[in-house]
Design a protein around this nucleic acid. Structure first.
Lengths: 166, 166
DNA sequence: TGCGTCTTCGCATCGTTTGCGAATTGGCAC
DNA sequence: GTGCCAATTCGCAAACGATGCGAAGACGCA
């Protein structure tokens, strides 16, 4: 997404006000390559600005989403994740720990919806692709777990929890 | 997904019991090509079997999902949708009314995650693709709306609500 | 027919998100 | 610098989807 300075311009141009809360959120979102939840952003923002309200985080995220500055992602259950990466990209997601990463994908424009009839006049203007699988950490952990059951080792390789780190 | 008769076999084989509630749900899911929510299934099931509990619908859907008989889909906010179509397919979704349709897609195996490095050892084993856009009904409705604002016509073409019809 | 286990179902609860309204504050005009 | 108005913040309550729990009931085998 755009830099905090640029967003400031855009907001002003639309008659929206620049508040310290918004500036903090602009900055956090601009600086992350993760896909934080509202709660994660709230936690990060609270560090820089104690007293900021979760309500404000949600509100600002809604505005940024409707302006197209961030994308709102939904993977199965759990809270929504927000993606400030404005480039044309897709996602990979670990089935085990839920971690998400951006990935560039080639060949997207060669995808062909086969049964055009069943589309029944539907006009697609965008496509989102999610690769499902297992991340390196969880793959390693499961190998370790398998070894443990056979050899009674006590290595504790815990999978990453999907912390935002925003 | 499999026929109610087949599912009955499978359930019995696993020591699970065949209840009238489950039979109704098997049948409803088998007969739809929609992507109903738990609530929608609950409504449809209540017609055939008044008194059935929403709790039971959720429970059965969870079982069928973990058995791989239905897929659980998540599109943005809102309740989960359940897809009994067991074939290899993907989805189109209308931005305006939320309607979902299955679509076969060619060229999926030619997709190439470009930056293999950024995958960092991630091993994908499945991919889900969603085309976003506008369905024929909503396209028509919006044309009508545009015409209305310029010519003051009083045609009321309402977009489809995403009823499950399951 | 009887018994053990699986199921159902209602209620309470949880996590995420939104509505509402009072108090506050940014930003422009003067 | 001051004042004003609209935009914003923020806390609380509540909507919403989904799940945990436990008592009562039903399936299915012997």
């Amino acid at each position: 997404m755009r830099s905090p300075a640029e967003l400031t311009e855009v907001f002003r141009a639309q008659g929206l006000k620049i508040t310290p809360q918004r500036q903090v959120l602009f900055s956090l979102l601009h600086d992350t390559d993760q896909h934080p939840t509202a709660e994660m952003l709230f936690a990060a923002a609270s560090d820089r600005m104690p007293g900021i309200s979760l309500r404000t985080v949600y509100q600002t995220l809604t505005e940024l989403t409707s302006m197209g500055e961030v994308r709102q992602l939904a993977f199965g259950s759990g809270p929504a994740r927000f993606d400030p990466n404005g480039s044309d990209h897709h996602h990979v997601r670990c089935r085990t720990c839920g971690a998400i990463r951006d990935v560039d994908v080639g060949g997207v424009d060669r995808l062909e919806p086969l049964d055009v009839e069943s589309l029944g006049g539907f006009e697609p203007d965008a496509v989102s692709i999610v690769f499902h699988g297992r991340c390196a950490e969880c793959a390693r952990a499961s190998v370790a777990a398998a070894a443990r059951t056979t050899t009674t080792t006590t290595t504790s390789t815990t999978p990453n929890t999907p912390t935002g780190g925003a």
